[in-house]
């Protein structure tokens, strides 16, 4: 794989705490664009944005439609919309029906970024209670990207990482506390 240009992270139930652990542990020197899709209600995303701003060494923003994807910035998917990335590295939103009962859906994000960044992408699946993200992670691997999955035994909700492992497999399957150090290592190498 080439040096990663982006990291895409998906999670659902238990995701707020997991994201705090992962994003709070990322190195301030990272130059990758980081895209996060969490299934949740709109007030949770606002709250999460505030919380993450305090604990992350990298800037945290909600992804804005038509704006450019920024390197070294954490972008959260806005509630109620699917988040996609165009090949010219600008964000696009969609209000198409839910996928796997979710909008934003991790699969929708992962399919779109897999094609944009190919082998320069790391896909991460954390805790969650459904199978969203599994097919998307498979797509990321098919196109040469790296897959990181939180060990199901370590996850607050096991279904999502379990499904990801079954459908996509993983290049790394590690406990939550190891994910930020792993990403730092892969990205700063």
């Amino acid at each position: 794989m080439s040096t990663p240009a982006a990291i895409a992270i998906g999670c659902s139930a238990g995701g707020v705490d997991a994201l705090k652990a992962v994003l709070g542990g990322l190195d301030a020197k990272l130059s990758q664009a980081i895209l996060v899709c969490l299934h949740s209600r709109s007030d949770t995303v606002d709250m999460l944005c505030q919380v993450l701003k305090r604990i992350s060494a990298l800037p945290v923003v909600e992804a804005i439609e038509r704006d450019a994807v920024q390197s070294g910035v954490i972008h959260l998917a806005p509630p109620g919309y699917h988040l996609l990335v165009e090949s010219d590295l600008h964000f696009a939103l969609s209000i198409d029906p839910r996928v796997n009962h979710a909008r934003p859906s991790i699969d929708v994000l992962f399919y779109s970024v897999a094609e944009v960044w190919r082998d320069a992408l790391i896909g991460v699946i954390l805790t969650g209670a459904n199978a969203d993200g599994a097919a998307g992670l498979r797509r990321i691997r098919q196109l040469g990207g790296v897959a990181v999955v939180q060990s199901p035994s370590d996850a607050e909700a096991t279904a999502m990482p379990q499904a990801a492992l079954e459908v996509a497999g993983a290049d790394y399957c590690v406990p939550l506390s190891d994910i930020a150090p792993l990403l730092n290592r892969l990205c700063l190498a």
């Binding site: 165009e86 090949s87 198409d96």
Partner: peptide, 9 residues
């Protein structure tokens, strides 16, 4: 139309 969604649809 913006290509990402159009392609998906």
């Amino acid at each position: 139309y913006a290509p990402a969604s159009l392609k998906r649809r």
